[in-house]
Amino acid sequence: MTQNADALDDDQLLRYSRHILLDEIGIEGQQTLAASTALIIGAGGLGAPASLYLAAAGVGRLVIVDHDTVELSNLQRQIVHDAGRLGEAKALSAQRTLHAINPLIEVVPVVARADDALLAQWVPQASVVLDCSDNFPTRHAINRACVAACVPLVSGAAVRFDGQLTSFDLRTPGNPCYHCLFPDEGDASDGPCATFGVFAPLTGLIGCGQAAEALKLLLGVGESLAGRLQLLDGKTLRWKEMRYKRDPACPVCGDHA
Rank of each mutant, 00 (worst) to 15 (best):
L218C: 03
A120S: 14
L104G: 15
E223V: 14
T172Y: 09
A91S: 11
Y16G: 08
S17L: 04
L218E: 09
L62T: 03
C146E: 05
L215F: 09
S127Y: 01
V110R: 15
V63F: 04
L92T: 06
D162T: 14
A48T: 06
S93T: 03
D162E: 15
N175D: 05
L237V: 13
C193H: 07
A214C: 02
S73H: 15
L205G: 00
T138N: 04
S155C: 14
R15N: 10
F168M: 05
G204F: 08
A100V: 10
T2C: 02
A91Y: 06
V110Q: 12
S224R: 12
C253Q: 08
L153I: 02
G191W: 12
T69P: 00
W122Q: 12
D10N: 13
L202M: 07
T2S: 14
R61D: 01
H179P: 01
Q30Y: 07
G87F: 02
V80Q: 08
L52Y: 08
L225W: 04
G174A: 13
E71V: 07
G163D: 12
L92N: 11
L8E: 12
L218Q: 07
A7E: 15
I206C: 07
A117I: 05
G84E: 13
M1E: 09
R171W: 01
L21H: 12
C180Q: 05
D11K: 13
P103K: 10
Q30D: 06
S155P: 02
D190I: 15
A35R: 15
G220T: 02
A117R: 11
N175Q: 15
E71F: 00
E185P: 00
A7C: 10
Y53V: 05
L22N: 09
L98S: 13
D68F: 09
D23E: 15
R18I: 11
I64Q: 07
G26T: 11
P124F: 03
A89N: 11
N4E: 11
T138H: 05
H140F: 14
A249K: 12
N74Q: 06
F199R: 04
A200L: 06
A141E: 09
A158P: 07
R113E: 14
S51M: 11
T172C: 09
D66H: 04
E106A: 15
L33R: 05
G42F: 07
K90W: 04
V198T: 12
